[in-house]
Structure formats: C-alpha cells, structure tokens
Amino acid sequence: MDLAVEVENLTKRFGDFVAVNEVSFSVAEGEVFGFLGPNGSGKSTTIRILCGLLSPSSGHARVAGLDVWRDAERIRQRIGYMPQFFSLYDDLTVAENIEFYAGLYQVPPALALARQSELAEVLELGPVLDRLARTLSTGWRQRLALATSILHRPPLLFLDEPTSGVDPLTRRLFWEVIGDLAHEGITVFVTTHVMDEAEHCTRLAMMHYGRLIAEGTPEEMRTEHVQTMVEVQAHPIWPVLQALEKAPEVVEVALFGDAVHAELRCDLNDAEARVERKLQTAGVAYERVVAVTPSMEDVFVSLARRWERPTAAGADR
C-alpha cells in the first residue's frame, strides 16, 4: 500500500519551546489515522507542518511522496484541511463560502453546485445555506467547515479536532461522514482529544508533550500498553483512590466516571482478589471490584503518566 503521509524525525521549535520532538510515523492510503493527545501536545503543529503552513525545524515530512515544505504548492490541490478554529467568512452565507472555496480549488461551477447539494444533503446543511456564517452555532459552523474542506475531493484530508465543541448528534454524523470518505478511498488524518472517538480510526498515534508515545490499531493500543485493569465501585470513592495509590502493585489509579480504574502489575486472574484484599486490609468500604477491558482513555492516562516522569525529572532538557 502506498504511503499518504511519511514523517521522519520531525521537530518543530518555537524559540526554546519544542512543540514537536523527533516524531516519526507514516499513514497508508485509505486509512483513518487518529492523532490523539491532550491540548498542547503538538497535534495541531504537526498538522500545520503537513499542510505546508509551518516549516519543520528539522526532520522530514512528505505528503503523497512530496516534501511538504519544498513542494508545498504541488500538494495544495491534493489535500483538504479543516483547522481547529472556524476559519471561514462570518459575513458570507454558507452557500457563498462553499462557492468561494469551490472557485479557489477550480471546481467547475456545475460540478460545484452538484457537490454543494450532495454535501448539504449529507451534512444536513440545506436549511442554513442562505444564512450568514456569523449566525450559525458551533455545530453548524463545523459542518460548513467540513463541507468546504472536502469540496474538491482531496485524496488526503486533515481534520484538526473537527468534533470539539459540537453536540453528540453532530459528532456521530461527523464520524459517519469520515467513515464514508474512507470508504471512497480518501485518507483521513484526524486529531482529537476525545479518546472514545479513537475507536472509529483504523490506526492511532498518541502525542504527549511533543513526543509520539504510542502507535497502533485501537485494539493494539488497548491490549499492548495496559495489561490488567480493574474497576472499583464504591461510595464514597475517595478513600479507594487513596488506598490504591499507595499500593506497590498498582501502576496507575484514575477516576473513571463515578468509579476508580486501577492498572496492576500482575496477571488478570488474581487481580480482583488482590485489590479486594488490599482494600480490606486498608479498611476501605467498596461495593464491587471487576476486571475490565481498558478504554482508550485508560490507555492514554497510563501512557501519559509513564511519559510524564522522565520529563518532570528533567530528562528532556
């Protein structure tokens, strides 16, 4: 399979600050590549480099085999980009924004109209086509932004947090559309900090403090990085958290909804018993201890904490 994106030892510095630190990964054509990480982890900077908007400080990045910096202009027509913040014109209507971008990508007018009605159908933009973008709420603006970024049918689409600030219905719609695009053979490179959304991707990379800390399919991410996970339900929950934090066999403890998730350094079959024993010795009341499959959020918390330590110890400096 051909590579849509290749990144080798990519680094981006802003003065003393290293936003992207020696990152390497690749994305095959047709993948839905999820780029995960908290705010400020270097996701947007990486996307901007891949779109030719920022120069790499060192390392290489190629899109469709072309260098993203030197051949930036040759890449433009082949990519679509939806920035993290709404970047269309407030004082134009939805249809006018679409028309403008169709013109910039030289989509013939008849085809542009056909695509506009097709996208209006898929993204349910029909009723707002003649409204000024200024008057739209976030969810509708994001739909418009997605529509303009795929108007010219780019083989590679960059979506920077497309679902941030949108309601669950729009969120579901977005992932449906992303799935449809992938089905048509479009490579989708999507960032998010909502870990559950990662399940929609064919492959994931996780960023933290500018570094790539893990990579793999959602399945691999869940199984390879976190071995044993138990969920404890209790009222109150706080004493459980405190008791488990001190336990030597516990790697990570974190609140998960109204329960506690604890990652353990032991085999799955006696994990529940160990935790129960631990809590009984500590004299902490609990309702239930069950082994669970780690969620993507568990994986992220676990990986992030593991990577925080050397950084905090000054290993990065």
């Binding site: 779109c51 030719g52 908007l53 202009e73 433009r76 027509q77 990519i79 980009y81 920035p83 913040f85 709404f86 970047s87 269309l88 014109y89 407030d90 971008y101 910039l104 990508y105 030289q106 303009t148």
Partner: peptide
C-alpha cells in the same frame, strides 16, 4: 480572524 490560514492551504 484566522481565515488566512484556510486561504493559505488552497492553491491560490
């Protein structure tokens, strides 16, 4: 306003 960022990724 941020609109230039979107404009810059086009072939304009």
């Amino acid at each position: 306003g941020g609109t230039l960022e979107q404009l810059m990724v086009t072939p304009l």
